[in-house]
């Protein structure tokens, strides 16, 4: 299924892109699964999205835990803890 994935701040710098549309393999049904799937792309991805790394995630512009289920057409985002204000 196709999802839109966005990357911000330090994550965006590490993986080298801000946005992409990707076809997610059948076994990937959660944000955690997507994160693991993206880690397999290479060193920069493995480091940027490392399992122990403190990252925040959004699904359709709501902050969510990585256990959440994703479906076709969703917009997901990976980013560091926020520092606005």
């Amino acid at each position: 299924m196709r999802v839109r994935v966005l990357y911000f701040a330090a994550v965006r710098e590490q993986v080298g892109k801000g946005a992409e549309e990707i076809d997610v393999p059948a076994g990937v049904t959660t944000l955690a699964g997507l994160r693991a799937h993206l880690r397999a792309r290479g060193d920069a991805w493995r480091e940027a999205l490392a399992e122990g790394k403190l990252l925040r995630m959004a699904l359709n512009q709501d902050m969510v835990p990585q256990s959440v289920t994703i479906k076709a057409g969703d917009e997901v985002a990976f980013f560091p803890p926020i520092t606005g204000g």
């Binding site: 330090a10 959004a58 926020i82 520092t83 204000g85």
Partner: peptide, 29 residues
């Protein structure tokens, strides 16, 4: 202000004499 600091997706990057660095989120927020 307290909620904005932890829920509004903004990120700050500082330019210092040593170079650029991303501001770290603070536990106090």
């Amino acid at each position: 202000m307290d909620y904005l600091k932890t829920r509004a997706p903004f990120w700050k990057k500082e330019r210092t004499p040593e170079g650029e660095r991303w501001v770290e989120a603070r536990a106090i927020d």
